[in-house]
Amino acid sequence: MANIASAQKRIRQTIVRTARNKARRSRVHSFVRKVEEAIASGNHAEARAAFVVAQPELQRAATKGVLKANTVSRKLSRLSARVKALSASV
């Protein structure tokens, strides 16, 4: 355990930030899962709606530093392509 006040404060801050980032990451996974489930069900309208809701959540994760910008871009691109392919098959 740290003996210096500033080190103790850093430990407290790390605990809070870790919890916050974990919650954000979990939230992103939930939104992405909803899109993937809609794609799996074959419902284009539902998949499109879920994707539109997930998009800002993923962007927010990049802004907050939970995920890297390129990771978010890649995930959005792949999800978008899958949703678009779903509309072509309907």
Rank of each mutant, 00 (worst) to 15 (best):
A40M: 09
Q13C: 05
R17V: 03
A40L: 08
F31H: 12
A2G: 10
T63V: 10
S41C: 13
A69S: 11
G65L: 03
N3G: 14
S26F: 06
H44Y: 09
F51E: 07
F31A: 15
G42C: 13
Q13K: 03
R82H: 03
A23T: 07
A5F: 10
I11E: 15
I39N: 09
V16H: 02
R78Y: 05
R25S: 03
A49M: 10
S77N: 04
A50T: 01
Q13A: 05
A2S: 15
K68Y: 01
A38Y: 02
I39A: 01
L79A: 03
K34F: 07
V83P: 00
A85C: 00
E37V: 10
A45K: 02
R10T: 03
R25Y: 10
L76K: 06
I11G: 13
Q59W: 11
Q13D: 14
V53E: 05
R10G: 03
A47T: 09
R78W: 10
S77K: 00
K64Q: 02
E57V: 08
A81C: 04
R17E: 02
A47L: 08
R82V: 01
S87Q: 11
R82F: 04
R25V: 10
E36N: 09
F51V: 04
R74Y: 07
S80T: 10
S87I: 02
A19T: 06
R20G: 12
A19S: 05
S26E: 12
R60M: 00
I11T: 14
K22E: 13
K75C: 11
A61P: 00
K9Q: 11
S30M: 13
S89K: 05
K9V: 04
A7R: 11
V90R: 10
A85I: 06
T14G: 15
K68C: 01
V32C: 05
A88R: 08
I4H: 12
V28N: 00
K75G: 12
V28D: 01
K34C: 11
I4T: 15
K22Q: 14
R20T: 14
A23E: 09
V35N: 15
E36T: 10
N43E: 12
